[in-house]
Design a binder for these strands. Structure first.
Lengths: 201, 201, 201, 201
DNA sequence: CAATAAACGAGACGGTACGTCAGGTCTTCTG
DNA sequence: CAGAAGACCTGACGTACCGTCTCGTTTATTG
């Protein structure tokens, strides 16, 4: 996370940093972002409040960092394979994405984080740089390869294409419009690929 | 808004109600949802705090009601024409939607409201019932008519179809992925209709 | 109780008046004067708040009226006999006074009422006119008779004398300085009479 | 003042403490105890409300502390001389007491404090320990010395004796029964000493 | 190997807002 | 038209946290 002020980072206490992120993650999971306070994080982490204010500019930043840390501990970023079968490759991304969104544990945290990110331009930039843009770019790259191979219309707008892949699922998730399962992911991939002019897989 | 407790609504002071909603709308526009407080709403509206707590369960509910009231004062719900030209009809909805999302005034309020709605199941239900579901349904109805007319594949999934129309634009808006203009709306409509198997307009 | 404004008293609802005084007395006994509220009195009495405000100027006035009503229902004012035995006659007043002050039930109410009376000149006047002055006057009258009979020094200051009889007991009660029993009352009477120059009984 | 909870007193800000007590004293003098609020004390003292709640359990306790502080700044406790002339020594205490009670400035504060103390057992204990008991004890000690010297009856009840000295004056003060001047104090001393069997001074 | 400087835990501080309670006024409906 | 019911504006309550600011106490280079 970008520091607001700049204490010497070499002197930073790694144990405190980890304890803070862990406490933040636990508290969000237990009670939601709305009930989260700096004081509770500090108390749970066994840390002075100032230690949090020293290294993070806002509560959202702490939670975001905690989320990032968890993401990296987990697999970190889905990578999109290129097996030659475009539909299969896209399903390999969208199916686990659907699984994640459907997980009740992720749901609360994800919504809380989304709400924060949407209303804080700094966090939004951070989110895009660290998570979203890389994901969109690997997807775009895969589609670009397919376009080069003639499997996608030559005039396809790849920015729009990635939005067509991720946007509908995101929309369904946030608004609770329907189930998020593999069948849905598959149907979505199939439909989008039809729009892009490729032959269905 | 659904009442948490249920004072006799016939005794409600209509002037106070209106003043509260107006004050809430102004304050959100001026300083954002995060800086909004019940006390400020009450002060600006010339109303006791208790009068707010009596009729609304949360700050989010007030703002949401204010938003709804404004929506209804404005045109209240897009209606989707059926001119026979499906692409033109969809553009007639998506172009003004893009305009709205691109409006900086709406942007702040919309993001704030979205954040609230996403994290409060009661608000989300309210939002779906009053705004989202009707919009999706008219869209679905228009597509259904087109399908009956043979302009859309017989096996088209209309739930997915509406998500394909609104989801990408919403995704682009929330994450700031690119411009939201008529050209984008048009391209989106064209691409989605290609996926649905209709002849492009 | 003196009325602050003056609605026509002939139209007053006697049942409401009684219910209010009863409710006030009960609530003071249950929870103390500090926890007493007009709203609770109204609720318990099954009466609108306005009915209380119409007839009493303050919460203290209601409680005071309730206290007076109770006093009058009970014996209403001690009368001081004149048996010829001054010491015995004074003991006949001071012993039951000590009993009353020592009663835990009276203690709470009495302290609450005292606190109100001491800080509200209107209530103090009311208290003196209705309760205190009559008591002091009968005591003074009894001493005057004794003085005429030569049992009390001719130059005795009767105002001071009554203060010597009631003041020490009141002082002991308010500050919790010691037991309030018949032995104490007797000793007090004996000592004061010695000061007044009468022969001890 | 006895603390309700016990934050580390060494970390206490002495300036805040003094500002609070000063503000409390001023506000009571200006508008009376009834109109006193914690919020006004905090505002006048330039202090957060929590700083008051942290160190005092109630509004009464603050005012009481303010009163104590003022007492200690002033002479702090009358001491009772032993000149050998008992009557003169007692007049040396009761005359300034009468002056104090007759002072309109003290009257309001004193009544307010009395009302609080009478209804709060904790405050009463505090009051007795810090102010009342020491006063009564020096008085008792002086009378004991006189009794040893044969100037007071051997069987005199000293507890009752001090009540006879202070009780009547207190009673007169609280109920507004008559003037509180040196002549009254002198008469009181004279009368009480007659009761105690000593020769009048 | 001190000494010295920074991060640290702890928590008091001046504040803001919370959600609740009660005050006293006002309005509406009922007997 | 007095009275019940209760909504209303006001203002204070006591609590929770905010972000800042000392306090000693580690901790970890650096002279």
């Amino acid at each position: 996370m970008a520091r607001h002020t700049a204490p010497d980072p070499t002197r930073r206490n790694e144990q405190s940093r980890a304890a803070i992120l862990t406490a933040a993650a636990e508290l969000v999971a237990e009670a939601g972002f709305g009930k989260l306070t700096i004081e509770k994080i500090a108390a749970r982490a066994g840390v002075g409040k100032q230690t949090i204010y020293r290294w993070w500019p806002s509560k959202g930043a702490v939670v975001f960092d905690a989320f990032l840390a968890a993401s990296q501990d987990a697999g970190g970023g889905y990578d999109l394979p290129d097996t030659g079968d475009l539909a299969a490759d896209l399903r390999a991304v969208l199916r686990p994405t659907a699984d994640e969104l459907a997980d009740p544990g992720f749901d609360r945290t994800g919504r809380a984080l989304t709400a924060e990110v949407l209303n804080d331009p700094d966090l939004l930039r951070e989110y895009r740089e660290r998570l979203l843009d890389p994901l969109l770019e690997v997807t775009r790259a895969r589609l670009r390869a397919a376009r080069t191979a003639g499997l996608v219309r030559a005039d396809a707008d790849l920015d729009l294409a990635v939005e067509l892949l991720y946007g509908p699922m995101y929309y369904r998730w946030l608004h609770g419009l329907g189930p998020l399962d593999h069948a849905y992911a598959d149907r979505l991939v199939e439909t989008v690929l039809r729009a892009l002019g490729a032959s269905t897989g």
